[in-house]
């Protein structure tokens, strides 16, 4: 009796010790997360109910920021643009990434060169990407329209025509998203046992048939992960739009994203309260969308 009691007490101090050390080891990350990510979320929420003055002065203004925000027609344009961007760009980029990942999972010559090429946009600064694409898209002197001329096609004014500007942005977004998606999908592909393909080919399945029946289902957890992070980053699209489309651009209403408008409010005209309100509404939208995605995963994601 006596012995067991001592044992339990020892166990519990040991456990306590373990817990202490456990927390100590994750403390740097946890503290960083709390101070630099979690706390600002609540702070932003609080500031969205305040009127910002100069030099950090603020005063309670209730729902005024949200009212001002929804009174601005720009906010509706920017939400529309962001939604269209996300819902077109994400499926497109994932589909292309899957195809490229599958192709780069074969044993072909110059494999690492191709992988590097497709990954390059990821390690390039978005601002630089925006600058380069702005030149490519230039309606009068750009290389894209120049090449279209060879086929006697009169290229559109990519970045100043309201009908084209969002498409142009989606193309750049897709192009720069493929790299990250591809790497994640490649790692997913390499987790699929080769024996499955061998068995399928012995049974006479064509490569396309086994792509749809083996690759896609077994890759679905990875695709799901890619979809979730792609949607989150697509809703926060900003940098290369900022570089390619100036505020005086005639197509600005069809081009600006929510974060573009957020930037305008926060840093151009200094209305940080309204900016906080925009950020918070966007946060809610992303949150809801992510929850929906997690709910829907049961229908199509196969875990082994």
């Amino acid at each position: 009796m006596k012995d067991t009691k001592v044992a339990t007490r020892q166990m519990s101090t040991l456990k306590k010790n373990d817990i202490f050390w456990g927390y100590l080891f994750i403390a740097p990350t946890l503290l960083g997360l709390l101070i630099f990510y979690i706390f600002p979320v609540f702070q932003t929420f609080y500031y969205s109910f305040n009127d910002w003055g100069d030099f950090g002065n603020y005063s309670w203004s209730g729902l005024q920021n949200y009212k001002d925000m929804f009174d601005d027609p720009q906010i509706w344009y920017s939400f529309r643009n962001t939604l269209v961007y996300a819902f077109v760009m994400v499926p497109f980029s994932i589909a292309i990434s899957i195809v490229i990942a599958v192709l780069l999972n074969q044993k072909i010559k110059g494999l690492t060169i191709y992988r590097t090429l497709f990954f390059l946009p990821v390690v390039t600064m978005p601002a630089a990407i925006g600058m380069i694409w702005k030149w490519l898209y230039n309606a009068d002197y750009g290389i894209i329209n120049h090449m279209l001329e060879w086929f006697s096609i009169d290229g559109p004014s990519w970045l100043t025509d309201p009908n084209w500007v969002l498409i142009s942005i989606i193309i750049v977004g897709t192009w720069s998203a493929i790299g990250t998606n591809m790497v994640i999908l490649l790692s997913g592909l390499q987790g699929i046992p080769k024996s499955l393909y061998e068995a399928a080919s012995l049974d006479g399945a064509s490569p396309i048939y086994s792509f749809f029946k083996i690759t896609l289902p077994l890759l679905s957890p990875t695709i799901f992960f890619v979809a979730v992070i792609s949607f989150i980053s697509a809703f926060q699209v900003f940098d290369f739009i900022f570089m390619m489309v100036s505020p005086t651009n005639p197509a600005i209403d069809s081009a600006q994203s929510v974060i573009y408008l957020f930037y305008h409010y926060a840093f151009v005209i200094g209305e940080k309260g309204i900016a906080a309100a925009i950020a918070f509404v966007l946060f809610i939208i992303i949150l809801v969308l992510t929850i929906i995605q997690f709910r829907l995963q049961k229908r199509w994601v196969h875990y082994e």
Binding site: T248, I252, V268, I269, G270
Partner: peptide
């Protein structure tokens, strides 16, 4: 608040110019 109204001028003139 110079920046507030200078962006107003800029945005509206951009609409006129286009």
């Amino acid at each position: 608040d110079t920046s507030k109204w200078s962006t107003i001028i800029q945005d509206n003139l951009a609409k006129a110019w286009s």
